[in-house]
Design a protein around this nucleic acid. Structure first.
Length: 556
DNA sequence: TAACTTCGAT
């Protein structure tokens, strides 16, 4: 191919050679400004804008930036369409997938409707190259476009599928709350004897943690030891998180100890957060102290864990002390999560007015979570005006025109009201996880389960248990109320576990919504009556029920 | 020079 002007081949155009050389040199410390400058200079010197070599090197440079500019990358790519080389195509897909908002990037690439880039890739035959397909799987997965991800994955001939193909699939599901799909794909991977690596196993462990599959997690742990992947620090961290999310703090600690020098700040953070959410706030803070003595620098997530621990232990002054130290010693600018912790800290301690003042004067715009934290504090300390608080807050949002928040709040009310949008509970028995939704009769042994439930209700009554029912349920008929409460998904799951599991083992429940006040009281009693340890993980905390009491002391 | 990880306030 000859360049019309100079008769040289494009790749030897001196300005281009120079540009490519400099782009390469700058890779050690990539800079957007430098790249743009070099690009402009090359174009001025007469390098054709659609020159594939220019695009290729420019894109690679952009991809190595900390926050790659997708728009610019797409503009560069567009210049060389419809004949992009696979490398350039792949680089742009990579940039899109790693961006904080992959969905928006996919739209920019017309991936969702029209699927332009995808079609372009297919047209040129490049999509048959496995690494382009892997990037597509990754991008679709990151966007939550699972059908598309699956389709591309299925298009890759089985022999050509590599570890990246499998991991991109698994990661897409794991990062987007689809734990069951992760386990399904992992099984398929095992079926064809594909050897997993650390990336694979992090996705698998994340999935186990999400559904609270402790027994499965233990088996995975043993497998990891067998294949020698326990030394991988990412895997170790995922294990700490898994055990903590399954309520097994001792196991989390053990993994942490065994990691030895392989520990990173993420390991410390995972255990600190794990201790805090399990109700071991003091231990979490002690661990943070040890971490500081070891001269490790906490991240903003570490500080979320520390502040969380303070608020759940009622350590108001310590909370403020850590908050100040976070800013001054570690130079971390508070994010909305940290401010949310501070509101929770004040609110839980009964300083509701102060919490409100804090919200209106804080440097960031409060979001729904912050308001809801305040609402939680109101509910905690003025329980009688509970449903009134919803209305009050709803009006407050409406008054300032925050209709989205009004909508979220209404949804919360419906959710708490349990009439629509039922909560579900997961319970693990040996190697399987069973799911129950309120009033569910789809389980093959549901007759037996409901008989058990009736027995439990009877014994609860004899213990003097009277459901209070929350005000949100006020518009439900008396009889329906009783049904709603007795058939809450966690109760079905507990009845099932009482029937089926070994009496010596704790019952572990994972619930998507919060345990309601009545169920909390009921489960306390059940733990006493049936002399069973019951561990419930709900949307934001753990409840360890034993002998009629619960580890969470602070809100019921 | 072609990929992807783990921890987060209600």
């Amino acid at each position: 191919m000859l360049d019309a002007a100079g008769g040289r081949t494009p790749s030897t155009h001196p300005a281009l050679r120079h540009c490519v050389e400099l782009l390469r040199l700058h890779l050690a410390s990539p800079s957007l400004a430098a790249a743009k400058q070099l690009h402009a200079r090359a174009l001025r010197a007469g390098v054709p804008p659609s020159h594939p070599l220019l695009a290729k090197h420019l894109l690679f440079h952009l991809a190595s930036l900390r926050a790659p500019p997708l728009r610019y990358a797409v503009a560069v790519l567009t210049r060389i369409l419809p004949d992009p080389d696979p490398f350039s195509l792949n680089t742009v897909l990579r940039i899109a997938a790693s961006s904080p908002r992959p969905r928006a990037c996919a739209r920019l690439l017309s991936l969702r409707d029209g699927e332009r880039i995808h079609a372009e890739a297919a047209k040129n035959g490049f999509a048959t190259l496995v690494f382009v397909k892997n990037s597509l799987v990754h991008l679709y997965g990151a966007c939550g476009l699972f059908e598309s991800a699956h389709r591309v994955f299925d298009e890759i001939p089985v022999r050509e599928r590599n570890l990246v193909s499998w991991n991109s699939m698994l990661n897409g599901f794991a990062a987007n709350g689809r734990p069951n799909e992760v386990l399904t794909v992992f099984r398929a991977m095992m079926d064809v004897d594909f050897a997993p690596d650390g990336f694979t196993m992090v996705s698998v462990l994340t999935a186990c943690a999400e559904i609270g599959a402790l027994a499965l997690g233990r088996r995975v742990h043993m497998y990891l030891a067998k294949v020698g992947l326990v030394g991988n620090s990412h895997v170790g961290n995922a294990l700490i998180d898994l055990y903590a999310k399954c309520g097994s703090v001792d196991d989390a600690r053990k993994v942490f100890e065994e990691m030895g020098t392989g520990r990173t700040v993420v390991s410390w953070t995972s255990l600190i957060v794990g201790l805090a959410v399990n109700g071991f706030g003091k231990e979490a803070l002690e661990l943070f102290g040890v971490m500081e003595r070891e001269k490790l620098v906490p991240t903003e997530i570490t500080m979320v864990g520390v502040l969380y621990a303070c608020s759940h232990c009622g350590l108001v002054d310590d909370g403020f002390m850590y908050f100040d130290r976070m800013k001054e010693e570690y130079g971390i600018t508070p994010r909305i999560e940290h401010l949310g912790c501070m509101v929770d800290l004040l609110g839980r301690a009964g300083k509701v007015e102060k919490a409100y003042d804090y919200i209106v004067t804080m440097p960031l715009e409060p979001n729904t979570v912050v308001w809801r934290t305040l609402l939680g504090a109101c509910a905690m300390h003025k329980t009688r005006r509970h449903s009134g608080d919803y209305v009050l807050l709803s009006n407050l949002y409406a008054a300032v025109g925050r209709w989205a928040d009004v909508h979220v709040l209404r949804k919360t009310m419906v959710k708490d009201g349990v009439r629509k949008n039922p909560g579900h509970s997961l319970v693990e028995l040996r190697n399987s996880v069973y799911e129950f939704v309120m009033g569910d009769r789809s389980h093959p042994e549901s007759e037996q389960i409901y008989r058990m439930l009736a027995q439990i209700a009877e014994r609860l009554r004899r213990e003097g248990y009277i459901p209070r029912t929350s005000n949100v349920l006020a518009d439900i008929e008396e009889e329906e109320k009783e049904t709603a409460l007795n058939y809450h998904s966690e109760r079905l799951a507990i009845a099932f576990a009482l029937l089926k599991s070994l009496p010596s083992t704790p019952i572990r429940i994972v619930k998507n919504l919060r345990v309601c006040g009545d169920c909390h009281t009921a489960i306390k009693l059940i733990s006493k009556i049936y002399d069973r340890e019951i561990i419930v993980r709900d949307c934001n905390r753990f409840h360890h029920f034993k002998g009629g009491s619960c580890s969470c002391k602070d809100y019921w």
